[in-house]
Every structure is written in C-alpha cells, then in structure tokens.
Write a protein that binds this DNA or RNA. Structure first.
Lengths: 245, 245
DNA sequence: GCGGCGCGCGTACGCCGTACCCGAAGCGTG
DNA sequence: CACGCTTCGGGTACGGCGTACGCGCGCCGC
C-alpha cells in the first residue's frame, strides 16, 4: 500500500506520516527524533508565535546544532506540515446516533479551540487538500454527526466543510486579535471611541445606524458570543436542508 | 478630528490612511510616492505571491534604492497594512431597499473575488480590528443589504461578520489550493486515487461512507459549487432569524 | 544668498534557511 | 579481529532578508 502511494507521487511528508502509522516503533536509540523536534516546535509556536520559530532557536531549545534538525525534516516547510498534522490531536468522539446538531456543535467548538490554541495553523498554508491522518480523523468525526440525517454523501461533506470554513475564518480574526496589543480591555475601550469618531453618518450610513443601536457596545462582550451566533446560523441553515430531505 | 485620533493613540498607519482622505492632494512633485509603492507591492504579491515580496525586489521594480522606500513606509509591516487597505477597492453598491438575500449574496461573492485575486490578504494578520477606511466601507456595504430586515443593529453586524468569516475561511483554502501544484487536473485525479487508498472503512468509517457515495467525485467539480452551498446555508440561517423577528 | 529640511541613497549588521562536507559510532561480513 | 558501510550529529559558509544610521543634494522661505 505504501508502495502504491509512492507510485502515485505522494509527497515525502505524507508518506512519512502514513508510514509512521503502519509500523509503529522499531527505531534505534537516537537523541533527536522527529517527534521531539515537532513537539518542541509546536511549543515555541504556541508561546512565542510562529514568527519566532526559527531552525536556530528550535535547535537551541533542543540542545542540538541547527543543522542536525535536517536529518529528520527535509526543510522548514516540511516541519510546518508535520506540526499541523500533530497539533490538532484527536478529534472529539461524536456519537453517530445522537442529535446531529449537538454533535456538530461539539465538533465546531473543539475545532475552534484547536485554532485558538495553535493560531499558527491558520497562517501556514498547506497548498494541498487535507490528506494527513490528523485532518482526515477530524473530517471523519464531523461526518459522524451527520451520518443519520438522510443527507447524501456529498451533502454531508459539503456541510462539514461549510462549518469548518466558518470556524476557520472566525478563529483567524479572533486569534489575531487575542495575540495582539488590542487584547486588553483599555484598548478595546479606545476601539469603541475610535469607531464612534470615524464612523459618521455621511460616510458610512449603515455602519453608523448599527453603531447608534449599540452594535459596537455589544461587540465588546465575550467574543464567544459572536462565534456562537454565526455558528447557530450555519447550523440553522444546515437544519433547513435536513428537514427538506 | 485627526488630532483627537492621535490623542486616543491611533497607530501611525491608520492616522496616515485617514489623513489621506481628509486633505486629498497638495503634495510636491516626488518620484516615489506611497501610492506608487503600495500599488507596485500589490502587483508583486498578486503575481508572484506574498513570499516573493521583499523590500529589495520592490525597490528594484520601482527603479529606486531599497532604503528609499523607508521614507514612505515605516517598515514592512506598515506596508502590508497599506496594501490590505488598498487592494480590496470599493465594495459593490448594495441597494438598501432591495432583497436582502440577493444583496448579501452579491456582497459575499465580491468579497470572495477580492480574496481570490489577492490571496495574501488572508495571510497577513492585521492583529487589530478593522479600522481602515477600506474595511469599513465593505462593512457598510454589507450592512446596507440588511438595513430593512428588522434585525437590530448588533444582529445585523453579527450576521455580516458571520458571512465574512465563512467567505474568509473558504477563500483561504480555495486560494491555497489554486496557487499550488494541486491545481491542475491530473493531480486532482491523483488526489481522488489517494483518497480512495487511504480512507478505509475501518479507519474512517464515515469518511469512507461519504466517499462510496461519490462525495469526492463531486468535489472535483467547480469549487464554486462548494462555496455556494455553504453560503446558501449561512443565508438560510440568517433568513431564519429574519422571519422570526 | 543662504540656512534648513525633505528626499533619495549607500553601507553595514544581525538573523534567517540551508547546501555541503566531516567525524564518530554501530553494524554485518571477511 | 579488521574492515568498510550506514546512520547520526555537527560545523562552516553563503545568499537573501529587514532595517538602523548617516550622507549629500536640491528646493523652499527668509
């Protein structure tokens, strides 16, 4: 099977990821392993941001020389692929027999949590469809929630992709703000002030109207509220076609 | 007013952006202008990708020395902010009196087009809420579509943010694939083969079930279809609360 | 005429990813 | 036991990046 993959022209990174699953251990003792490298890289990216992750810094944290890393990863891009396969962990177990909406909501919330804990996943662009074991496991978990809904296969897939896209988009903005200088409360106060200053009725009439109704006061509350609202609308929409099918 | 902004502690980049609007021209002749720099930077990022945009390359394209750019932008990060303000252009004019759903759909499609034309917008993380004139104009256009729906201000804002988040998430994945080696048809064929090879019933039961129903054959068609499906679900969900209000 | 200032530029520095080559240790084979 | 091969960790070196800093030129108001 692995051979077949090579024939098809699977990228090196994916071959390694799937090989790993097939033949679990059987390695000689070695101080530097891919697992350790990837785990440490994730640590750095989580705490200091993806921009602070350099091969030199990573090696220093591992107590090794920079170039030694290249025994285990082909280059930095491959390291990032390994990182984004490992970081999400295992998806929540969704009961295929349970309520589809509750299941999908759990799934979406877990996914958002992953993105908020590892915001750099949203920044590194895979440039290819999800084919690593990690991503497929998450897709499978999402589909589990919809398995008894009567939707056909392509609809089920389209539905979880829609939810995933929404979660991804929201998380990216949310994570971007959380990790910046705009996170603290005082600066958010300033944001409201600036908004009221810049949004005038003649320039942005509809924005001004919403602002006068207190839209931006609302926005200052827990950002989870905005996320839940959008998610609920998406689930409403999915429910709409489930009822009709 | 500009003074007030400075008092509040507005970042330099935003002050420039809004200043520009207030006092239109009145500049001496100068060969290097911020407008020209930003426009050329956008050109490079669009055609060669954001990774290919360096200050040196930009200067070369402009026929100037690298360090001359720093007379007009504080640093590269500020340049990126200027770029993402300018690139989206003016939003489509939405008739506030028209059908809200049609209006929002036009808005979402235009937004997606912006993201596909300038994929780098999705990669650079603003790290702050949208406060530049460009972003606010788009928000205003989106809100126009909902102005007669009976939703209150914060709901209208939450609704367009939900749509924006979805569009953003979808565009990011879609743009990532479009610009990669997986774009051509032959490789997509391989993607289907790999999928069928890796997705086994014991490992990913629900994914396998969807696959057997031809979910991945469907996925190979125009990616616009998947986008429209998710957007329709989101709009269905928004319609659901409009009807109830 | 002249001082100041805005503009474009050149040099230099530290950090980045990584190509390339070397030495040491463990292994099966003669 | 000797030997070569393979595998692993490391060191050096290079080109490219963003940008701090200082210089000279030309235009402007006085």
């Amino acid at each position: 099977m692995i051979g077949a993959m090579a024939d098809i022209g699977m990228p090196r990174s994916l071959r390694i990821l799937w090989d790993m699953e097939e033949q679990p251990v059987k390695r000689p003792v070695q101080s530097l392993t891919r697992e350790r490298i990837v785990a440490t890289a994730i640590e750095i990216a989580d705490t200091d941001g993806i921009a602070a992750l350099s091969m030199a810094k990573l090696a220093e944290r591992l107590g090794s020389a920079t170039m030694s890393l290249y025994r285990h990863v082909a280059n930095k891009e491959e390291l990032l692929i390994f990182m984004s396969d490992a970081a999400p962990g295992t998806p929540p177990a969704i009961d295929p027999g349970g309520d589809w909406r509750a299941g999908l909501e759990v799934w979406a919330l877990a996914l958002r949590e992953v993105y908020l804990r590892h915001p750099w996943i949203l920044v590194i662009n895979p440039g290819r469809p999800p084919l690593d074991p990690g991503q497929l496991a998450w897709a499978d978990a999402g589909l589990a929630a919809l398995s008894r809904t009567g939707l056909d296969g392509s609809r089920r897939l389209a539905a979880i992709m829609a939810v995933l896209n929404y979660v991804r988009g929201e998380a990216q903005i949310s994570a971007g703000l959380a990790g910046s200088a705009w996170a603290d409360e005082e600066t958010q106060q300033r944001y409201g002030d600036l908004m009221r200053l810049l949004v005038t009725r003649d320039r942005f009439p509809h924005l001004a109207a919403a602002s006068e109704e207190g839209a931006f006061a609302m926005e200052e509350e827990a950002d989870g509220a905005a996320f839940s609202f959008g998610l609920a609308r998406m689930l409403d929409g999915i429910g709409h076609i489930i009822d009709k099918s």
